[in-house]
Design a protein around this nucleic acid. Structure first.
Length: 458
RNA sequence: GGUCCGGUGGUGUAGUGGUUAACAUGCCAGUCUGUCACACUGGAGAUCGCGGGUUCAAUUCCCGUCCGGACCGCCA
């Protein structure tokens, strides 16, 4: 089924049609010249001059000017506008005119009725003007509902919606099913990070750090290919621009693969499909507002073995990371630069990490390295993936090697005792992608409501 | 968790051991022939994060504390 089919189903519901049609989005206004229409929106600007008043309205799709002459006939409206405050919500009925003198879209509404549905307080706790937006970040997060009124912030969430829809579209076309795995766990899930503990009728349970074990369970259930878009919780006291204690993880797992390259093939296709849809659906807005452009044909994502990447960084950039079996932040940025310079690619796969840097369930290849990969986008890790070890004897040996108590993961090991296809998958952090795509300083800027060590409100 | 940095009108900043704490923006009032980041004039608005110390005098210097940020580590 394609997304278009879903739209058709909704359209056939006439009650829904009526609700959808009631609100005229400002974006669509040119279709209404000469007509009497009702507009709903926030008050963006008020300019009250001697003989005329201008009120600029804003909705999620754009802005439009309402023009009110000051005269006896319009006196009731003049008085309303005189007391009006910015960011109030109003319902305005009137005739829409094409008016070339108006710089804002060359149109204006001449109102016959002006209703204030909600009067905003005179002063706002944060500055939400597009051209300054200068309040500090904490204050903006405290007042996130106001901060999100900025048009450019809304566009970020439109992009997020398109990105997820594009992925779903691709999965639906390629025999993936969606799963919803539990987030309350009796045993801590595996990801290496600290877990949140909570009281559960007198006993201790854990919040899921990852759907890892359960998406693999779906492989043992014969689901073939699955995906999940869901929250993950990490009790890490991380103070960086790209960590959160709760974030939305996009997880994929697929059966009957020959190696981690099959998983990378899928992820590469998905990333390209996301960019294609972003360009098609939001390309113009993204370019106008954020100067984001998309390549017509993305190059193949380079796949660089871990130790070769280390060597390249040392040779080309004269930098030696502190960590022997992994990258530090600077190495990530440098290999990102290298991929852009040598291959013209914002994306780069780093593959075949040593077992020391990876969890026990990653499969080892003949070269003694894991059949694993990270995907970096503009120098930041957005994915970790691998072919999983599905042979229970090897899996148990690797778990023991990592010092894990086998009893604690027995429920997981059980998935492998009664037949399971070779499989692999990955976890993808959408906010990290969006942060770099929109060139924002932090995932906080692309998260609806951020959760971190110092932030659990609003 | 480690290192470094910061907290001054609603907001963003400047500044100072001394009696009126400055600027921009926002807000209020008035003026203004259609504005469009309107313009102009005037006004209100700050116990300078909190506690202690030094001093004749602390928003300023010192100590503590709270709150926050940046980078690193951990990872998506």
């Amino acid at each position: 089924m394609k997304l278009g089919d879903l739209r058709d189903i909704i359209r056939k519901d006439t009650r829904m049609e009526r609700v959808f049609m009631k609100k005229i989005y400002f974006r669509d206004l040119p279709a209404y010249y000469g007509q009497t229409i009702e507009l709903h929106g926030f008050v963006d600007k008020i300019r009250d001059l001697q003989y005329v008043q201008f009120v600029v309205l804003r909705d999620s799709s754009g802005k439009v000017q309402v023009t009110i002459e000051k005269n006896e006939l319009l006196k009731p409206i003049n008085e309303i506008v005189q007391k009006l405050t910015k960011e109030s919500t109003v319902k305005v009925t009137g005739v829409l005119h094409e008016q070339p003198h108006v710089k804002l879209r060359g149109m204006e509404l001449i109102p016959s009725e002006f209703v204030v549905t909600s009067l905003a307080a005179e002063e706002l706790p944060i500055d939400i003007l597009d051209y300054t937006n200068k309040s500090n970040k904490e204050l903006r997060l405290d007042n996130r509902f106001l901060d999100l009124r900025l048009e450019k912030n809304y566009l970020i969430f439109k992009a997020q919606t398109v990105a997820e829809a594009a992925m779903r579209e691709y999965w639906l076309d390629h025999n993936f099913v969606e799963i919803h795995s539990p987030k309350i766990l009796g045993t801590a899930s595996e990801s290496g990070a600290e877990v949140f503990k909570l009281d559960y009728f007198g006993r201790t349970v854990f919040l899921a750090q990852s759907p890892q074990f359960y998406k693999q369970m779906a492989m043992a259930s014969g689901f073939n290919n699955v995906f999940e878009i869901a929250p993950a919780f990490r009790a890490e006291n991380s103070h960086t621009a790209y960590h959160a204690t709760e974030f939305t993880s996009i997880d994929v797992e697929m059966s009957w693969i020959d190696s981690h390259h099959d998983v990378m093939d899928l992820e590469e296709a998905l990333c390209k499909h996301v960019e294609k849809r972003l360009k098609e659906i939001l390309g113009k807005e993204l370019e106008e507002t954020f100067k984001i452009t998309f390549d017509e044909n993305l190059p193949a994502f380079p796949r660089i073995p871990f130790y070769e990447a280390k060597r390249i960084i040392a040779e080309k950039y004269k930098y030696n990371g502190e960590k022997e079996h992994d990258f530090d932040r600077k190495e990530e940025e440098l290999i990102g630069l290298y991929a852009k310079k040598e291959f013209g690619s914002d994306y780069v796969f780093v593959i075949d990490y040593p077992f020391a840097a990876r969890p026990f369930y990653h499969m080892l290849g003949e070269n003694g390295l894991t059949k694993s990969f990270d995907l970096l986008y503009r120098g930041i890790e957005i994915t970790t993936g691998a072919q999983r070890e599905h042979r229970i004897d090897v899996l148990m040996r690797q778990a023991a090697e990592k010092g894990l108590a086998l009893e604690a993961i027995d429920f997981y090991l059980n998935f492998f005792r009664y037949g399971v296809p070779p499989h692999g998958g990955y976890g993808y952090g959408l906010t990290r992608f969006l942060m770099r795509l929109f060139d924002q300083e932090s995932i906080r800027d692309v998260t609806f409501l951020y959760r971190g060590p110092n932030r659990v409100n609003p």
